[in-house]
Computed example of a mutant assay.
Amino acid sequence: MSNRLVFDLMIAERSLRRCIDARSGDTGIGAAGAGVLFHLAQHDNALVGDVSAAMCASPSGMSGLVSRLERAGFLAKTPDAGDARAVRLSLTPAGREAVGTAKSVVRELNAAMSEGFTEAELTVIDRWLGHITHRLT
Rank of each mutant, 00 (worst) to 15 (best):
Thr123Cys: 06
Val105Pro: 02
His43Phe: 03
Leu91Phe: 03
Ala72Glu: 11
Thr133Ser: 11
Arg127Glu: 07
Glu108His: 11
Ser90Thr: 12
Arg17Ile: 12
Arg135Leu: 07
Ala76Ile: 11
Ala84Gly: 07
Phe38Arg: 08
Gly61Trp: 03
Ala98Leu: 10
Ala111Gln: 15
Ala98Met: 04
Ala120Phe: 06
Met1Tyr: 13
Lys77Ala: 08
Gly95Glu: 01
Ala111Lys: 08
Arg4Thr: 05
Arg107Leu: 02
Leu47His: 06
Met62Val: 14
Asp44Thr: 08
Asp126Leu: 10
Leu129His: 09
His39Pro: 03
Gly30Arg: 05
Arg23His: 13
Arg68Gln: 03
Gly64Tyr: 07
Thr101Ala: 14
Leu109Met: 07
Ser104Cys: 10
Met113Ser: 13
Leu91Ala: 10
Asp8Val: 08
His134Ile: 09
Ser58Pro: 00
Ala22Cys: 05
Gly95Phe: 01
Lys103Met: 01
Thr27Leu: 11
Val48Thr: 13
Ser2Pro: 15
Met55Trp: 00
Ser63Glu: 04
Leu89Lys: 02
Gln42Met: 01
Met55Ile: 05
Glu97His: 13
Glu121Thr: 07
Cys19Val: 12
Leu16Gly: 03
Asn3Val: 10
Leu136Asp: 14
Leu40Met: 05
Val6Ala: 09
Leu91Thr: 03
Ala84Phe: 01
Ser63Pro: 00
Ala72Phe: 06
Glu70Arg: 13
Glu97Leu: 11
Ala54Lys: 05
Asp21Phe: 06
Thr123Gln: 13
Ser67Trp: 09
Thr78Phe: 05
Ser24Gln: 03
Asp50Cys: 03
Leu91Ser: 11
Glu121Trp: 03
Val36Leu: 01
Ala53Asn: 07
Val106Gly: 01
Thr133Pro: 00
Arg107Thr: 14
Arg71Thr: 13
Asp83Cys: 09
Thr118Lys: 06
Val87Ile: 15
Ala54Asn: 05
Arg135Trp: 12
Asp26Leu: 03
Met62His: 02
Glu13Ser: 15
